[in-house]
Amino acid sequence: MANFVLIAGAWLGAWAWDEVVPELRAGGHGAHPLTLSGLADRQNVPAGQRTHVQDIVSEVECLDLRDVVLVGHSYSGIPVGQAAERIGDRLAGVVFVDSSVPTDGESFVSGWPGGRAMVEASIAATGGYWAPLTEADCEGQGLTDEQIARIVDGSTPHPGATLTEPAVLVRPLGALPATYVKCLLDGAEPSDDVAALLTSEHWRLVEMDTGHWPMFSQPRKLARILLDAVAM
């Protein structure tokens, strides 16, 4: 039995995995969706990126989880990649779902496709937070109107420090046993840093014909991909 620890991307909380968790548990595995500090029902908790890494490590250690598969979506790939190094032999693998990946000494905004200035301006204008999603942000991503409404209504401002603090890696990320899920409606090709990691014998690529939030648009298919990652 594997234990999946599921972390959604910016603005979202554990609730984002509501349609994925039952599929994993039906397969006989543990499923532990996690809300990071400063988000959703934990909005009042101060958070930087190191806080988010510790959130993940603490979840694994406090629940005494073994055979752990860390699942990081979007922004959360950055703290997940760092936490994977810190949980030692508890780790069975990592699944990065259309996510950023950490680079030692670099932050989330360092690699933001639209330029870091856009994110930093939003953080400055929103009192230290990245403004939450709008309906327009979700268009063209394979989502129904109802799914878009769920995402937008559930989104909360994202703590800015988690986006600007640099990652700290002790070992090469390519040494981790990892699956990278590329959602094709959000771009046909992985980013350059992900493409470099996919040359590792420990990494594999899986494509989904959907947008950036597959836990909403194709939750059952995403769950099958997660289960397949355990079977390998």
Results as ranks from 00 to 15, higher is better:
Met1Asp: 14
Phe4Leu: 12
Gly9Leu: 04
Gly13Met: 00
Gly13His: 05
Trp15Ala: 06
Gly27Tyr: 12
Leu36Asn: 08
Asp41Val: 10
Val45Gln: 14
Ile56Val: 11
Ser58Phe: 03
Ser58Lys: 12
Glu59Asp: 05
Glu59Gln: 14
Glu61Arg: 14
Glu61Lys: 09
Cys62Leu: 15
Asp67Ser: 14
Val68Ile: 08
Tyr75Met: 10
Gly81Lys: 05
Ala84Ser: 09
Ile87Glu: 04
Gly88Thr: 09
Asp89Lys: 15
Ala92Met: 13
Gly93Cys: 07
Gly93Ala: 07
Gly93Leu: 07
Val94Glu: 11
Phe96Trp: 12
Val97His: 08
Asp104Glu: 02
Ser110Pro: 04
Gly115Asp: 01
Ala117Trp: 05
Ala117Arg: 10
Ser122Gly: 13
Ala124Pro: 02
Glu135Ala: 12
Cys138Met: 14
Ile148Val: 14
Arg150Pro: 02
Pro157Thr: 10
Pro157Arg: 11
Ala161His: 01
Glu165Leu: 09
Pro166Cys: 09
Val168Phe: 03
Tyr180Trp: 10
Cys183Thr: 06
Leu184Pro: 03
Glu189Met: 10
Ala196Ile: 02
Thr199Trp: 01
His202Phe: 02
Leu205Ser: 07
Asp209Tyr: 02
Thr210Gly: 00
His212Ile: 03
Pro214Thr: 07
Ser217Asp: 00
Arg224Leu: 08
Leu226Glu: 13
Leu227Val: 03
Asp228Gly: 13
Ala229Arg: 08
